[in-house]
Simulated assay, not measured.
Amino acid sequence: MEIGASLLATVGVLIVGRVAYGVAVNLGQDQWSSGARAVFLVLNSFVLVFGLFVLLLGDQVRRGRTWAWITGLVMLPFTILFGVVLLLITALSGAVPWAGAGVVLVAVAALITLSAPRATRAYFTRGPAHPAPPVGQAAWTGGRS
């Protein structure tokens, strides 16, 4: 579980880093119009929020939150799909897609680590803990309701 949570958080960090790098490169270029630059920044802000949310999910999975585990298992395939699309776009433009490959590989590893091991599934699919019976004289009903 710890490894899967760490990998999930790493996916978030890679997404945030990729956005930061892309925005820095974009702001350094002069051939973009102000409208195109604004659209690029707005779209990247959505990806940045997504990356920060994935980072938060990694922390919550590490803390044993079932909702975060389920949400991570739902979001990781979309992260992989989005990463593959960006990887292909980068590769087809003639650049080496290091960041895209990193996101995809770490996301695949996180998905496998959060879903494949029996101990991880058992930990998150266990039933809710039953509360301890109340302690004290007033709580005793003598078997009668």
Rank of each mutant, 00 (worst) to 15 (best):
3 I>N: 10
4 G>S: 01
7 L>M: 08
7 L>V: 05
9 A>C: 05
10 T>D: 04
11 V>T: 13
11 V>S: 08
12 G>E: 01
13 V>K: 01
14 L>F: 03
15 I>M: 13
16 V>K: 02
17 G>I: 02
18 R>Y: 02
18 R>E: 01
19 V>C: 00
19 V>D: 04
20 A>Y: 09
20 A>S: 11
21 Y>S: 06
22 G>N: 02
23 V>T: 11
23 V>S: 11
24 A>D: 14
24 A>N: 14
27 L>H: 12
27 L>R: 15
27 L>I: 10
28 G>H: 12
29 Q>P: 14
30 D>F: 08
31 Q>N: 14
32 W>F: 15
32 W>G: 12
32 W>V: 14
33 S>D: 14
33 S>N: 12
34 S>M: 12
35 G>A: 11
35 G>C: 03
37 R>P: 07
38 A>G: 11
41 L>Y: 05
41 L>R: 03
42 V>I: 01
43 L>A: 09
44 N>G: 04
45 S>N: 10
45 S>L: 08
47 V>C: 10
48 L>Q: 11
50 F>W: 15
51 G>I: 02
52 L>F: 06
52 L>W: 04
55 L>I: 07
56 L>P: 04
57 L>Y: 05
58 G>F: 04
58 G>C: 03
59 D>P: 02
59 D>E: 05
60 Q>F: 07
60 Q>C: 06
60 Q>V: 03
61 V>M: 08
62 R>N: 13
63 R>G: 13
63 R>L: 13
64 G>D: 12
64 G>C: 13
65 R>S: 12
65 R>P: 10
69 W>P: 08
69 W>S: 11
71 T>M: 14
71 T>L: 14
73 L>A: 14
74 V>N: 12
74 V>W: 12
74 V>I: 12
76 L>Y: 13
80 I>W: 06
80 I>R: 09
80 I>H: 09
80 I>L: 10
81 L>G: 14
83 G>F: 06
84 V>W: 10
86 L>D: 11
86 L>V: 12
86 L>R: 12
88 L>W: 09
88 L>E: 04
89 I>R: 08
89 I>W: 05
90 T>V: 00
91 A>C: 06
94 G>Y: 00
94 G>D: 03
95 A>F: 04
96 V>D: 03
96 V>A: 03
96 V>I: 08
98 W>N: 05
102 G>E: 04
103 V>E: 00
104 V>F: 01
104 V>W: 00
105 L>I: 15
108 V>R: 03
109 A>D: 03
109 A>S: 08
111 L>D: 05
111 L>E: 04
112 I>P: 02
112 I>S: 06
112 I>H: 06
113 T>S: 03
115 S>P: 05
117 P>W: 02
117 P>D: 03
118 R>I: 01
118 R>M: 05
120 T>E: 00
121 R>W: 01
121 R>N: 01
123 Y>C: 03
124 F>G: 10
125 T>L: 07
126 R>K: 15
129 A>H: 14
130 H>N: 15
131 P>I: 11
132 A>T: 11
133 P>W: 00
135 V>N: 07
137 Q>W: 08
137 Q>E: 10
138 A>M: 07
138 A>T: 09
138 A>Y: 06
140 W>K: 06
144 R>K: 13
144 R>A: 10
144 R>G: 06
145 S>R: 15
145 S>V: 12
